[in-house]
Write a protein that binds this DNA or RNA. Structure first.
Ligand code: ZN
Ligand code: ZN
Ligand code: ZN
Ligand code: ZN
Lengths: 177, 177
DNA sequence: GCGGTTGGTGTTATATTATAACATTAACAC
DNA sequence: GTGTTAATGTTATAATATAACACCAACCGC
Protein backbone atom coordinates (compact mmCIF):
# COMPACT_ATOMS: atom_id res chain seq x y z
CA UNK A 1 0.00 0.00 0.00
CA UNK A 2 1.26 3.40 -0.78
CA UNK A 3 2.28 5.77 1.89
CA UNK A 4 -1.00 7.10 3.20
CA UNK A 5 0.44 10.26 4.72
CA UNK A 6 2.00 11.32 1.46
CA UNK A 7 0.25 13.97 -0.56
CA UNK A 8 2.33 15.25 -3.45
CA UNK A 9 0.31 18.44 -3.43
CA UNK A 10 -2.74 19.82 -1.71
CA UNK A 11 -3.44 21.79 -4.88
CA UNK A 12 -6.05 20.62 -7.33
CA UNK A 13 -5.02 18.67 -10.37
CA UNK A 14 -5.67 20.16 -13.75
CA UNK A 15 -8.90 18.84 -15.09
CA UNK A 16 -10.05 17.50 -11.75
CA UNK A 17 -13.76 17.24 -11.26
CA UNK A 18 -14.36 20.53 -9.61
CA UNK A 19 -18.11 20.20 -9.52
CA UNK A 20 -17.41 17.40 -7.08
CA UNK A 21 -15.34 19.74 -4.89
CA UNK A 22 -18.26 22.15 -4.78
CA UNK A 23 -20.87 19.51 -4.07
CA UNK A 24 -18.76 18.02 -1.33
CA UNK A 25 -18.18 21.40 0.28
CA UNK A 26 -21.88 22.22 0.26
CA UNK A 27 -22.87 18.87 1.70
CA UNK A 28 -20.22 19.10 4.41
CA UNK A 29 -21.39 22.62 5.24
CA UNK A 30 -25.00 21.56 5.52
CA UNK A 31 -24.06 18.69 7.81
CA UNK A 32 -21.84 20.87 9.94
CA UNK A 33 -24.49 23.56 10.35
CA UNK A 34 -27.09 20.96 11.21
CA UNK A 35 -24.82 19.55 13.91
CA UNK A 36 -24.14 23.01 15.28
CA UNK A 37 -27.72 24.16 15.15
CA UNK A 38 -26.79 26.92 12.75
CA UNK A 39 -28.78 27.99 9.74
CA UNK A 40 -27.20 27.58 6.32
CA UNK A 41 -29.67 29.89 4.61
CA UNK A 42 -29.92 30.08 0.82
CA UNK A 43 -27.88 33.26 0.81
CA UNK A 44 -25.13 31.81 2.97
CA UNK A 45 -25.12 28.66 0.94
CA UNK A 46 -24.84 30.66 -2.26
CA UNK A 47 -21.95 32.72 -0.91
CA UNK A 48 -20.17 29.52 0.06
CA UNK A 49 -20.82 28.11 -3.39
CA UNK A 50 -19.31 31.23 -4.94
CA UNK A 51 -16.27 31.02 -2.69
CA UNK A 52 -15.87 27.49 -3.93
CA UNK A 53 -16.36 28.48 -7.56
CA UNK A 54 -12.64 27.94 -7.96
CA UNK A 55 -9.56 27.15 -5.93
CA UNK A 56 -8.41 30.69 -6.37
CA UNK A 57 -9.18 33.05 -3.51
CA UNK A 58 -12.10 35.32 -4.30
CA UNK A 59 -12.70 38.85 -3.09
CA UNK A 60 -15.85 40.05 -1.41
CA UNK A 61 -16.75 42.32 -4.30
CA UNK A 62 -16.31 39.57 -6.86
CA UNK A 63 -18.79 37.55 -4.85
CA UNK A 64 -21.05 40.57 -4.75
CA UNK A 65 -20.96 40.94 -8.52
CA UNK A 66 -21.95 37.34 -8.98
CA UNK A 67 -24.76 37.63 -6.47
CA UNK A 68 -26.07 40.55 -8.45
CA UNK A 69 -26.02 38.63 -11.70
CA UNK A 70 -28.04 35.99 -9.88
CA UNK A 71 -30.78 38.58 -10.01
CA UNK A 72 -30.65 38.75 -6.25
CA UNK A 73 -30.67 42.06 -4.46
CA UNK A 74 -27.22 42.50 -2.97
CA UNK A 75 -25.00 45.13 -1.43
CA UNK A 76 -21.65 44.92 0.36
CA UNK A 77 -23.20 44.04 3.74
CA UNK A 78 -24.97 41.13 2.09
CA UNK A 79 -21.75 39.42 1.19
CA UNK A 80 -19.78 40.46 4.26
CA UNK A 81 -22.49 39.03 6.49
CA UNK A 82 -22.44 35.80 4.61
CA UNK A 83 -18.68 35.63 4.83
CA UNK A 84 -18.74 36.48 8.52
CA UNK A 85 -21.06 33.57 9.17
CA UNK A 86 -18.96 31.20 7.10
CA UNK A 87 -15.79 32.34 8.84
CA UNK A 88 -17.38 31.79 12.24
CA UNK A 89 -18.39 28.27 11.25
CA UNK A 90 -14.92 27.57 9.93
CA UNK A 91 -16.26 27.00 6.42
CA UNK A 92 -14.02 29.55 4.75
CA UNK A 93 -10.66 31.10 5.47
CA UNK A 94 -9.72 34.71 5.00
CA UNK A 95 -6.40 35.40 3.35
CA UNK A 96 -5.12 38.62 4.84
CA UNK A 97 -2.41 39.18 2.27
CA UNK A 98 -4.96 39.09 -0.56
CA UNK A 99 -8.08 40.47 1.10
CA UNK A 100 -9.77 37.39 -0.26
CA UNK A 101 -11.45 34.19 0.81
CA UNK A 102 -11.06 30.50 0.14
CA UNK A 103 -13.21 27.55 1.05
CA UNK A 104 -11.94 25.46 3.94
CA UNK A 105 -10.86 22.07 2.71
CA UNK A 106 -11.51 20.39 6.01
CA UNK A 107 -14.20 22.12 8.02
CA UNK A 108 -15.74 20.81 11.16
CA UNK A 109 -12.82 20.82 13.50
CA UNK A 110 -10.66 23.61 14.80
CA UNK A 111 -7.43 23.92 12.94
CA UNK A 112 -4.90 26.62 12.37
CA UNK A 113 -3.93 26.65 8.77
CA UNK A 114 -0.92 27.48 6.74
CA UNK A 115 -2.12 28.91 3.46
CA UNK A 116 -0.07 28.26 0.34
CA UNK A 117 -0.65 30.71 -2.49
CA UNK A 118 0.66 29.91 -5.94
CA UNK A 119 1.76 33.08 -7.67
CA UNK A 120 1.61 31.34 -11.04
CA UNK A 121 -1.83 29.77 -11.17
CA UNK A 122 -3.36 31.88 -8.40
CA UNK A 123 -4.68 28.89 -6.52
CA UNK A 124 -4.49 28.63 -2.77
CA UNK A 125 -4.39 25.53 -0.63
CA UNK A 126 -4.18 24.91 3.06
CA UNK A 127 -2.00 22.79 5.27
CA UNK A 128 -2.27 22.08 8.96
CA UNK A 129 1.18 20.92 9.90
CA UNK A 130 1.55 20.16 13.57
CA UNK A 131 5.30 20.66 13.45
CA UNK A 132 4.83 24.18 12.13
CA UNK A 133 2.33 24.99 14.81
CA UNK A 134 4.59 23.51 17.43
CA UNK A 135 7.58 25.49 16.18
CA UNK A 136 5.53 28.68 16.19
CA UNK A 137 4.21 28.08 19.69
CA UNK A 138 7.61 27.19 21.07
CA UNK A 139 9.27 30.18 19.48
CA UNK A 140 6.64 32.50 20.86
CA UNK A 141 6.71 30.92 24.30
CA UNK A 142 10.47 31.28 24.53
CA UNK A 143 9.90 34.95 23.98
CA UNK A 144 7.28 35.26 26.67
CA UNK A 145 4.41 35.47 24.21
CA UNK A 146 1.25 33.42 24.53
CA UNK A 147 -0.32 32.80 21.13
CA UNK A 148 -4.03 33.15 20.50
CA UNK A 149 -4.30 33.54 16.75
CA UNK A 150 -2.03 32.64 13.87
CA UNK A 151 -1.82 33.90 10.34
CA UNK A 152 0.55 31.97 8.10
CA UNK A 153 0.47 32.66 4.38
CA UNK A 154 3.19 31.43 2.10
CA UNK A 155 3.46 32.57 -1.49
CA UNK A 156 5.39 30.60 -4.06
CA UNK A 157 4.88 28.08 -6.81
CA UNK A 158 2.82 24.95 -6.49
CA UNK A 159 3.96 21.55 -7.65
CA UNK A 160 1.61 21.48 -10.60
CA UNK A 161 2.92 24.80 -11.87
CA UNK A 162 6.55 23.81 -11.40
CA UNK A 163 6.06 20.89 -13.71
CA UNK A 164 6.43 17.99 -11.37
CA UNK A 165 2.74 17.38 -11.61
CA UNK A 166 0.50 17.55 -14.61
CA UNK A 167 2.23 20.45 -16.29
CA UNK A 168 4.48 18.08 -18.24
CA UNK A 169 1.38 16.73 -19.95
CA UNK A 170 -0.32 20.06 -20.11
CA UNK A 171 2.31 22.21 -21.72
CA UNK A 172 2.31 25.61 -20.15
CA UNK A 173 -1.38 25.88 -19.72
CA UNK A 174 -2.40 26.61 -16.18
CA UNK A 175 -3.70 23.64 -14.29
CA UNK A 176 -6.55 25.56 -12.76
CA UNK A 177 -9.02 27.90 -14.38
CA UNK B 1 26.54 42.11 22.94
CA UNK B 2 23.29 40.80 24.13
CA UNK B 3 22.58 37.93 26.45
CA UNK B 4 22.96 35.09 24.01
CA UNK B 5 20.46 32.48 25.10
CA UNK B 6 17.59 34.00 26.90
CA UNK B 7 15.42 36.88 25.79
CA UNK B 8 12.47 37.24 28.10
CA UNK B 9 10.64 39.31 25.52
CA UNK B 10 11.33 41.14 22.30
CA UNK B 11 8.72 43.66 23.38
CA UNK B 12 9.76 46.98 24.84
CA UNK B 13 9.86 47.45 28.58
CA UNK B 14 7.56 49.93 30.15
CA UNK B 15 9.37 53.20 30.58
CA UNK B 16 12.21 52.24 28.28
CA UNK B 17 14.00 55.08 26.59
CA UNK B 18 12.06 55.18 23.40
CA UNK B 19 13.79 58.26 22.06
CA UNK B 20 16.81 56.02 21.89
CA UNK B 21 14.89 53.47 19.81
CA UNK B 22 13.99 56.21 17.36
CA UNK B 23 17.47 57.67 17.16
CA UNK B 24 18.98 54.27 16.64
CA UNK B 25 16.53 53.42 13.89
CA UNK B 26 17.20 56.66 12.07
CA UNK B 27 20.94 56.29 12.30
CA UNK B 28 20.80 52.70 11.13
CA UNK B 29 18.57 53.72 8.24
CA UNK B 30 20.92 56.48 7.16
CA UNK B 31 23.87 54.10 7.25
CA UNK B 32 21.99 51.41 5.36
CA UNK B 33 20.86 53.80 2.64
CA UNK B 34 24.35 55.21 2.30
CA UNK B 35 25.75 51.70 1.85
CA UNK B 36 23.07 50.87 -0.71
CA UNK B 37 23.39 54.11 -2.62
CA UNK B 38 19.77 54.96 -1.84
CA UNK B 39 18.49 58.36 -0.85
CA UNK B 40 16.96 58.74 2.57
CA UNK B 41 15.28 62.02 1.74
CA UNK B 42 13.75 64.25 4.45
CA UNK B 43 10.30 62.95 3.61
CA UNK B 44 11.32 59.31 3.78
CA UNK B 45 13.22 59.92 6.96
CA UNK B 46 10.20 61.62 8.48
CA UNK B 47 7.91 58.75 7.52
CA UNK B 48 10.32 56.32 9.12
CA UNK B 49 10.44 58.47 12.23
CA UNK B 50 6.64 58.42 12.41
CA UNK B 51 6.55 54.66 11.97
CA UNK B 52 8.92 54.48 14.89
CA UNK B 53 6.88 56.89 16.98
CA UNK B 54 5.80 53.88 19.00
CA UNK B 55 6.08 50.12 19.06
CA UNK B 56 2.48 49.86 18.01
CA UNK B 57 1.87 49.37 14.30
CA UNK B 58 0.74 52.56 12.61
CA UNK B 59 -1.57 52.91 9.64
CA UNK B 60 -0.77 54.87 6.51
CA UNK B 61 -3.48 57.42 7.21
CA UNK B 62 -2.27 58.01 10.75
CA UNK B 63 1.13 58.78 9.28
CA UNK B 64 -0.56 61.05 6.77
CA UNK B 65 -2.34 63.00 9.51
CA UNK B 66 0.90 63.58 11.32
CA UNK B 67 2.67 64.68 8.17
CA UNK B 68 -0.08 67.23 7.66
CA UNK B 69 0.28 68.61 11.16
CA UNK B 70 3.97 69.02 10.35
CA UNK B 71 2.74 71.74 8.04
CA UNK B 72 4.00 69.69 5.14
CA UNK B 73 1.90 69.22 2.05
CA UNK B 74 0.79 65.61 2.02
CA UNK B 75 -1.69 63.29 0.34
CA UNK B 76 -2.07 59.51 0.39
CA UNK B 77 0.54 58.94 -2.33
CA UNK B 78 3.04 60.89 -0.25
CA UNK B 79 2.95 58.42 2.57
CA UNK B 80 2.52 55.30 0.44
CA UNK B 81 5.57 56.24 -1.58
CA UNK B 82 7.58 56.74 1.54
CA UNK B 83 6.41 53.43 2.91
CA UNK B 84 7.10 51.68 -0.37
CA UNK B 85 10.67 52.88 -0.27
CA UNK B 86 11.12 51.87 3.36
CA UNK B 87 9.64 48.44 2.66
CA UNK B 88 11.99 47.94 -0.28
CA UNK B 89 14.97 48.84 1.89
CA UNK B 90 13.77 46.50 4.62
CA UNK B 91 13.43 49.37 7.08
CA UNK B 92 9.79 48.70 7.92
CA UNK B 93 7.50 45.70 7.86
CA UNK B 94 3.92 45.64 6.73
CA UNK B 95 1.47 43.79 8.93
CA UNK B 96 -1.17 42.39 6.61
CA UNK B 97 -3.64 41.50 9.34
CA UNK B 98 -3.68 45.10 10.57
CA UNK B 99 -3.04 47.07 7.38
CA UNK B 100 -0.34 48.77 9.35
CA UNK B 101 3.41 49.19 9.53
CA UNK B 102 6.13 48.72 12.10
CA UNK B 103 9.77 49.66 12.08
CA UNK B 104 12.15 46.80 11.46
CA UNK B 105 14.15 46.07 14.57
CA UNK B 106 17.09 44.67 12.65
CA UNK B 107 17.39 46.14 9.17
CA UNK B 108 20.27 45.64 6.85
CA UNK B 109 20.07 41.96 6.20
CA UNK B 110 17.41 39.85 4.60
CA UNK B 111 15.22 38.12 7.10
CA UNK B 112 11.79 36.66 7.13
CA UNK B 113 10.03 37.70 10.26
CA UNK B 114 7.43 36.32 12.54
CA UNK B 115 5.42 39.24 13.85
CA UNK B 116 4.01 39.03 17.37
CA UNK B 117 1.05 41.30 18.03
CA UNK B 118 -0.08 41.86 21.59
CA UNK B 119 -3.84 42.27 21.70
CA UNK B 120 -3.59 43.89 25.11
CA UNK B 121 -1.03 46.65 24.70
CA UNK B 122 -1.18 46.80 20.92
CA UNK B 123 2.57 46.54 20.51
CA UNK B 124 4.15 44.40 17.84
CA UNK B 125 7.55 42.78 17.84
CA UNK B 126 9.41 40.63 15.42
CA UNK B 127 11.24 37.36 15.66
CA UNK B 128 13.35 35.58 13.11
CA UNK B 129 13.40 32.02 14.32
CA UNK B 130 15.33 29.70 12.06
CA UNK B 131 13.45 26.67 13.33
CA UNK B 132 10.15 28.23 12.33
CA UNK B 133 11.43 29.07 8.89
CA UNK B 134 12.84 25.61 8.53
CA UNK B 135 9.58 24.00 9.60
CA UNK B 136 7.64 26.16 7.16
CA UNK B 137 9.99 25.39 4.30
CA UNK B 138 10.00 21.68 5.01
CA UNK B 139 6.24 21.50 5.31
CA UNK B 140 5.79 23.33 2.04
CA UNK B 141 8.44 21.27 0.26
CA UNK B 142 6.81 18.03 1.35
CA UNK B 143 3.70 19.30 -0.36
CA UNK B 144 5.47 20.17 -3.57
CA UNK B 145 5.42 23.90 -2.92
CA UNK B 146 8.44 26.12 -3.31
CA UNK B 147 8.24 29.11 -0.99
CA UNK B 148 9.06 32.61 -2.12
CA UNK B 149 7.40 34.84 0.45
CA UNK B 150 6.21 34.27 3.97
CA UNK B 151 3.73 36.11 6.12
CA UNK B 152 3.62 35.00 9.73
CA UNK B 153 1.64 37.08 12.19
CA UNK B 154 0.78 35.78 15.63
CA UNK B 155 -1.65 37.57 17.89
CA UNK B 156 -1.70 36.98 21.60
CA UNK B 157 -0.43 38.50 24.82
CA UNK B 158 3.11 39.64 25.39
CA UNK B 159 5.12 38.80 28.48
CA UNK B 160 4.90 42.29 29.87
CA UNK B 161 1.12 42.30 29.64
CA UNK B 162 0.79 38.87 31.19
CA UNK B 163 2.61 40.05 34.28
CA UNK B 164 5.81 38.09 34.07
CA UNK B 165 7.60 41.26 33.12
CA UNK B 166 7.13 44.72 34.50
CA UNK B 167 3.41 44.55 35.04
CA UNK B 168 3.90 43.35 38.60
CA UNK B 169 5.56 46.66 39.34
CA UNK B 170 3.26 48.64 37.11
CA UNK B 171 -0.14 47.58 38.29
CA UNK B 172 -2.45 47.27 35.37
CA UNK B 173 -1.13 50.18 33.44
CA UNK B 174 -0.06 49.32 29.97
CA UNK B 175 3.68 49.03 29.55
CA UNK B 176 3.66 50.94 26.30
CA UNK B 177 1.96 54.17 25.38
C1' DG C 1 25.95 76.63 -20.05
C1' DC C 2 22.34 73.74 -22.04
C1' DG C 3 19.18 70.08 -23.41
C1' DG C 4 17.80 65.73 -22.02
C1' DT C 5 16.93 62.33 -18.65
C1' DT C 6 15.83 60.68 -14.19
C1' DG C 7 13.98 60.39 -9.65
C1' DG C 8 11.35 62.46 -6.18
C1' DT C 9 7.42 65.00 -4.90
C1' DG C 10 2.85 67.57 -5.50
C1' DT C 11 -1.84 67.18 -6.78
C1' DT C 12 -6.29 65.49 -8.20
C1' DA C 13 -9.06 61.86 -8.82
C1' DT C 14 -10.54 57.30 -8.25
C1' DA C 15 -10.36 52.31 -7.04
C1' DT C 16 -10.84 48.80 -3.57
C1' DT C 17 -12.12 46.93 0.79
C1' DA C 18 -15.08 47.13 4.78
C1' DT C 19 -18.51 48.78 8.21
C1' DA C 20 -22.30 51.77 10.48
C1' DA C 21 -26.98 52.54 10.95
C1' DC C 22 -31.53 51.77 10.37
C1' DA C 23 -35.69 49.60 7.88
C1' DT C 24 -37.94 45.46 6.60
C1' DT C 25 -38.91 40.69 6.42
C1' DA C 26 -38.78 35.81 7.79
C1' DA C 27 -38.62 32.34 11.34
C1' DC C 28 -39.84 30.79 15.71
C1' DA C 29 -42.06 30.49 20.44
C1' DC C 30 -45.92 30.86 23.04
C1' DG D 1 -51.94 35.75 16.16
C1' DT D 2 -48.54 38.32 18.82
C1' DG D 3 -44.19 39.21 20.47
C1' DT D 4 -39.36 38.14 19.87
C1' DT D 5 -35.33 37.22 17.48
C1' DA D 6 -32.46 36.34 13.52
C1' DA D 7 -31.65 37.37 8.87
C1' DT D 8 -31.75 40.32 5.11
C1' DG D 9 -32.49 44.80 2.53
C1' DT D 10 -30.97 49.46 1.95
C1' DT D 11 -28.43 53.71 2.17
C1' DA D 12 -24.55 55.89 3.41
C1' DT D 13 -19.89 56.28 4.69
C1' DA D 14 -15.33 54.84 6.52
C1' DA D 15 -10.78 53.06 5.73
C1' DT D 16 -7.19 51.56 2.74
C1' DA D 17 -4.70 51.96 -1.58
C1' DT D 18 -3.46 53.29 -6.37
C1' DA D 19 -3.70 55.73 -11.13
C1' DA D 20 -2.45 59.51 -13.72
C1' DC D 21 -0.33 63.53 -14.70
C1' DA D 22 2.25 67.94 -13.43
C1' DC D 23 6.25 69.97 -11.54
C1' DC D 24 10.87 70.50 -10.09
C1' DA D 25 15.51 69.59 -8.87
C1' DA D 26 19.57 66.82 -9.56
C1' DC D 27 22.45 64.80 -12.58
C1' DC D 28 24.69 63.62 -17.14
C1' DG D 29 26.70 64.26 -21.52
C1' DC D 30 28.03 67.52 -24.33
ZN1 ZN E 1 -11.82 21.60 -7.22
ZN1 ZN F 1 0.05 26.77 -9.25
ZN1 ZN G 1 11.13 51.93 22.02
ZN1 ZN H 1 1.50 43.65 25.51
Amino acid sequence: MKDPGRRPTPFPRRGHNHAKCVRHALVAAAELCARQGERLTPLRRRVLELVWSSHQPIGAYAILDRLKTDGRSAAPPTVYRGLEFLLEQGLVHRIASLNAFIGCADPGHAHSVQILICTQCGAAAELDDGRVNKALGRSAAENGFSVEGRIVELSGVCGSCRGGGDRARAGHRPHVA
